[in-house]
Nucleic acid binder design. Structure first.
Lengths: 150, 150
DNA sequence: TTATTTTTGTTGCATTTACAACATTCTAAA
DNA sequence: TTTAGAATGTTGTAAATGCAACAAAAATAA
């Protein structure tokens, strides 16, 4: 069995660390870029959904989002039909940093795929998506308090 | 440009979260499994090297390792030829949990690769390793305080 | 040899992370 | 319709994370 997940963990830590350093310039503290990009791409998304997409703990997402709001990157709007939820939208300020996050991410993808043919990149993308889909089932299972058997 | 790194981040968060929950059973707190497996596999490794391999901050590694020692999973030994370094070794207790970490990881790899042919798994492994090598260059560069241009 | 620089390790401090426990509102079942 | 359960959000608390700043030893340069 090849240690694919170990490699994935290493890559993810490296990337997250790079991004966190690079986004300090835009007053984004650790982890915040994650939420902000998604809110820009899915305006109106709610916090619960965001935590599911990103695979972060509900309460961690809650606090990150609170801070994004506090710092003026996003705003929360009540839904007239569902008083439980708060829809999240980027502010002007949030929209204005989005392109910088995008470029950073595009650059990292570019670096990551250095030496890859178009076909190899496409293959990797397809395979990694399948891994993500496989793993998210277990994540929800375990996060809900269930125990995996193995 | 395909969002490969975004997928990788999501997978890594999901897996880390699963592992952290599953290893509580062995009295390992958040993140500790990472260091313990590597120390078991590379007895005598030093903390600095560990942080480079794993791509975690030096000081975070330092504290995780301190805690592993405090809880009896590993021990540190002075090197007679180099008074600066402290070599890390698993204790009996550390060795005894290692197999459980291994099985968990193997199971996760198994889940991740569900539906993959042997060839697809091998391809993914090769490609992902290349990504890791590409990215670690930038990690060291940025961690050392340099600024990427893009 | 002496002086610099690099390597390795630590600690203070502010922040993030995540479990547990709770409160509301909504949805589905009885 | 009432009730039980699920969905969504919050807060308290303990712990992990990571930057800055430091110290000591080793490696390299002058």
């Amino acid at each position: 069995m090849k240690e694919i997940l170990r490699e994935i963990g290493t890559i993810a830590r490296a990337l997250d660390s790079i991004s966190n350093i690079e986004f300090k310039e835009y007053e984004l503290t650790k982890g915040q870029y994650l939420y902000l990009v998604r809110i820009c791409e899915h305006p109106g998304i709610i916090q619960e959904k965001l935590s599911e997409i990103l695979k972060v703990d509900r309460t961690t997402a809650a606090r990150a989002i609170k801070k994004l709001e506090l710092n003026g990157f996003i705003e929360r709007k009540d839904d007239p039909y569902n008083r439980k939820i708060k829809k999240l939208f980027p502010t002007e300020k949030g929209e204005s940093v989005y392109p910088y996050i995008r470029s950073e991410h595009i650059h990292s993808d570019y670096v990551a795929l250095a030496g890859f043919s178009d076909e190899e990149a496409e293959t990797l993308f397809q395979l990694i998506q399948r891994v993500r889909k496989n793993i998210e089932v277990d994540w929800e299972f375990v996060k809900k308090g269930n125990k995996r058997k193995y």
